[in-house]
Simulated assay, not measured.
Amino acid sequence: MLVKIIVVCLLIFMVFNLFRAMKIMLNGNPDQQQSMTKFIGRRVMTSALIMLLILLALAMGWITPNPRPY
C-alpha cells in the first residue's frame, strides 16, 4: 500500500511540474526559458523514478501484477 501511495504522490508531482512549465511557456517571456527546462527535466526525472520504483517493487514482491486472463 505504501508503494502505491508513493507512486500516486510522484504522479501528482509530475503533473504539477508539467503545468508549471506550461504556465511559463504561455507567458512568452524569453528570460524564463531556463525555468521551463528545469520543470520539464523534473518531470522526466520523476517519470524515470516511478518506473524504477515499480520495477523494484515487482522484483522485491511488494506489489504483484494482475494474473494472465487465459
Results as ranks from 00 to 15, higher is better:
residue 23 K to F: 12
residue 48 A to G: 10
residue 45 M to A: 14
residue 18 L to I: 14
residue 47 S to K: 10
residue 65 P to A: 11
residue 18 L to G: 05
residue 61 G to Y: 13
residue 56 L to T: 06
residue 63 I to V: 15
residue 3 V to R: 13
residue 49 L to D: 11
residue 54 I to K: 00
residue 64 T to K: 09
residue 22 M to C: 01
residue 45 M to T: 12
residue 53 L to D: 08
residue 7 V to R: 14
residue 31 D to A: 07
residue 16 F to L: 04
residue 44 V to F: 12
residue 3 V to I: 14
residue 57 A to P: 04
residue 7 V to G: 05
residue 31 D to L: 12
residue 13 F to H: 10
residue 27 N to F: 14
residue 66 N to K: 15
residue 9 C to A: 08
residue 24 I to N: 06
residue 38 K to L: 01
residue 59 A to G: 01
residue 31 D to N: 11
residue 60 M to S: 12
residue 3 V to N: 07
residue 25 M to E: 02
residue 17 N to S: 02
residue 68 R to P: 05
residue 24 I to W: 14
residue 21 A to Q: 02
residue 38 K to Y: 12
residue 69 P to D: 07
residue 55 L to V: 01
residue 57 A to I: 01
residue 26 L to S: 02
residue 62 W to Q: 01
residue 21 A to T: 05
residue 13 F to G: 02
residue 48 A to H: 09
residue 21 A to I: 07
residue 62 W to M: 00
residue 57 A to M: 00
residue 8 V to M: 11
residue 27 N to M: 09
residue 14 M to D: 08
residue 70 Y to M: 03
residue 34 Q to Y: 02
residue 26 L to V: 11
residue 47 S to H: 15
residue 60 M to A: 06
residue 47 S to M: 08
residue 52 L to E: 05
residue 65 P to T: 06
residue 35 S to C: 04
residue 63 I to C: 03
residue 5 I to M: 13
residue 60 M to F: 15
residue 6 I to L: 08
residue 48 A to Q: 04
